[in-house]
Simulated scan of single mutants.
Amino acid sequence: MSIPSDIRPLVNELYQVLDDSERQATKGLFALRTAMSLFPENEILMQYFSSISNFQFCVAGTRLQAENIVNNILLVDVPDEDVQKAGDYLATLLHIAPKVKIMIDKVVERLEEALP
């Protein structure tokens, strides 16, 4: 069985936002590691590291939830009502995921402004 056509765009958009968030977080952590090697006791850099790590954890958790929902939709004989509930939950995740991406973007932007 495949993902229902009315849910497929929702799933694709959610995964795209999560992928973008992961890439941005990885970019931020790479820059942070370089800066932290130069200033290992800098509390602001430690806060940035903590924030980005927490955001990565949130993204990973959201991805896991989405994958579990999609896997449940793909089971045989899933009632239409359950598919609708799954779609609603995926829509909720899609509503939350961009907010996390925006927070990651803000932290990385501040980091890039602070580092030469």
Rank of each mutant, 00 (worst) to 15 (best):
Leu64Trp: 09
Thr62Tyr: 00
Pro79Cys: 10
Glu81Pro: 00
Ile52Arg: 00
Asp77Asn: 15
Ala25Thr: 10
Val70Gly: 10
Val59Cys: 15
Arg23Gly: 10
Met36Glu: 04
Arg33Val: 01
Asn71Gln: 15
Arg110His: 13
Phe57Tyr: 12
Asp105Ala: 15
Asp82Asn: 13
Ala31Glu: 06
Ser37Tyr: 15
Lys106Cys: 06
Asn54Tyr: 08
Ala97Cys: 04
Gly28Phe: 02
Phe30Arg: 11
Pro4Val: 02
Ser50Asn: 10
Tyr48Ala: 08
Ile73Glu: 13
Glu109Ile: 07
Ser50Lys: 12
Val70Met: 06
Thr62Glu: 06
Arg8Gln: 15
Pro40Tyr: 09
Gln47His: 08
Tyr15Asp: 12
Glu113Ile: 12
Leu64Lys: 14
Leu64Asn: 14
Val78Met: 14
Ala86Ser: 15
Pro4Cys: 02
Leu93Asn: 05
Asp19Lys: 08
Glu41Met: 11
Val83Thr: 14
Leu111Tyr: 00
Arg23Phe: 05
Pro116Asp: 09
Asp88Leu: 13
Asn72Arg: 09
Val70Cys: 07
Phe57Asn: 13
Ser51Gln: 10
Gly28Tyr: 00
Ile73Tyr: 12
Gln65Tyr: 04
Met46Asn: 02
Arg23Glu: 11
Thr26Ser: 13
Arg110Lys: 10
Arg8His: 10
Ser50Asp: 08
Glu13Trp: 00
Glu113Trp: 02
Gly28Thr: 04
Leu18Ala: 11
Leu74Arg: 13
Leu14Asn: 04
Leu94Glu: 04
Leu18Tyr: 01
Val59Asn: 15
Ala25Trp: 02
Leu94Asp: 05
Leu32His: 04
Ser51Ile: 00
Phe55Gln: 03
Asn42Gly: 05
Arg8Cys: 05
Val70Arg: 10
Ile52Gln: 01
Ile3His: 07
Leu93Ile: 02
Asp80Arg: 11
Ala31Trp: 01
Leu90Arg: 01
Gln84Tyr: 09
Pro98Met: 07
Thr34Ala: 12
Thr34Ile: 13
Ala86Val: 06
Leu18Asp: 00
Asn68Pro: 02
Arg110Asp: 15
Val108Leu: 07
Asp80Val: 12
Thr26Ala: 14
Phe55Cys: 05
Ser37Val: 06
Arg63Met: 04
Phe30Ala: 08
Leu75Ser: 06
Gly61Tyr: 02
Val59Ser: 11
Ile96Trp: 09
Asn12Val: 14
Leu93Met: 12
